[in-house]
Amino acid sequence: MPKIIPIKDLKNTAEISEMVHSAEEPIYVTKNGYGDMVIMSVEMYESTMKRLSMYRELELSEKQIESGKTKDARESLGNLKEKYGI
């Protein structure tokens, strides 16, 4: 279940830091009862960005496959072996 805190709780920075590092998901911050911000540790942010990048690359690959922009792997490896005398 997501952790939700009011914005006034951000005053206690040491407690917030401990909270974001121990949480396994982002912490939602509300202002006047409505969602305002999301905070997370640097490690979680970097992990999320890596995952997002991977999904973007997969999406690009799927689009290339759909549009026929692919090459046969065996043929490509054969060409490389021939080119570099492997």
Score class of each variant (00 low, 15 high):
72 D>H: 03
7 I>T: 03
20 V>N: 04
70 T>K: 06
2 P>M: 15
20 V>C: 01
70 T>H: 00
13 T>G: 14
25 E>V: 15
2 P>I: 06
8 K>Y: 04
61 S>D: 03
37 M>G: 10
55 Y>P: 08
39 I>R: 00
67 S>M: 10
53 S>H: 06
30 T>D: 09
26 P>F: 13
20 V>A: 01
4 I>M: 05
34 Y>D: 12
62 E>D: 10
29 V>L: 05
58 L>Q: 02
38 V>H: 08
39 I>V: 02
64 Q>H: 13
77 L>V: 01
48 T>V: 04
48 T>D: 11
75 E>K: 08
30 T>I: 04
4 I>H: 03
79 N>Q: 13
56 R>M: 09
8 K>Q: 12
17 S>P: 12
42 V>G: 07
13 T>K: 09
22 S>A: 13
68 G>I: 09
11 K>P: 09
19 M>A: 08
12 N>E: 15
62 E>W: 08
53 S>Q: 11
13 T>P: 04
61 S>Y: 02
71 K>A: 15
31 K>G: 06
29 V>G: 13
44 M>R: 04
43 E>A: 15
40 M>C: 09
36 D>I: 00
49 M>N: 00
64 Q>V: 15
62 E>R: 10
6 P>K: 00
66 E>W: 11
36 D>A: 13
10 L>H: 01
15 E>F: 10
69 K>I: 04
69 K>R: 02
81 K>S: 02
27 I>R: 05
80 L>G: 01
77 L>P: 01
76 S>Y: 07
20 V>H: 00
46 E>S: 03
7 I>D: 01
50 K>D: 09
79 N>H: 06
52 L>H: 03
19 M>D: 02
72 D>E: 12
31 K>Q: 11
58 L>S: 11
79 N>M: 05
58 L>H: 07
50 K>T: 12
31 K>E: 11
39 I>D: 04
6 P>Q: 13
38 V>R: 07
70 T>G: 05
50 K>H: 06
37 M>T: 03
50 K>R: 05
12 N>R: 14
70 T>A: 14
42 V>F: 09
70 T>C: 08
27 I>P: 07
26 P>I: 15
37 M>I: 11
9 D>F: 15
79 N>E: 11
44 M>G: 04
51 R>Q: 07
15 E>Y: 15
81 K>T: 00
1 M>T: 06
67 S>A: 07
37 M>A: 03
53 S>L: 11
2 P>C: 13
26 P>L: 12
56 R>S: 08
6 P>R: 03
9 D>Q: 15
52 L>E: 14
75 E>G: 14
62 E>S: 01
78 G>V: 08
64 Q>A: 12
22 S>T: 12
22 S>E: 06
38 V>K: 14
80 L>S: 06
21 H>Y: 07
40 M>P: 09
42 V>L: 07
32 N>Q: 12
70 T>S: 09
67 S>G: 02
67 S>D: 10
62 E>Q: 00
84 Y>S: 09
18 E>I: 11
12 N>F: 13
24 E>I: 10
41 S>Q: 02
16 I>T: 02
22 S>Y: 08
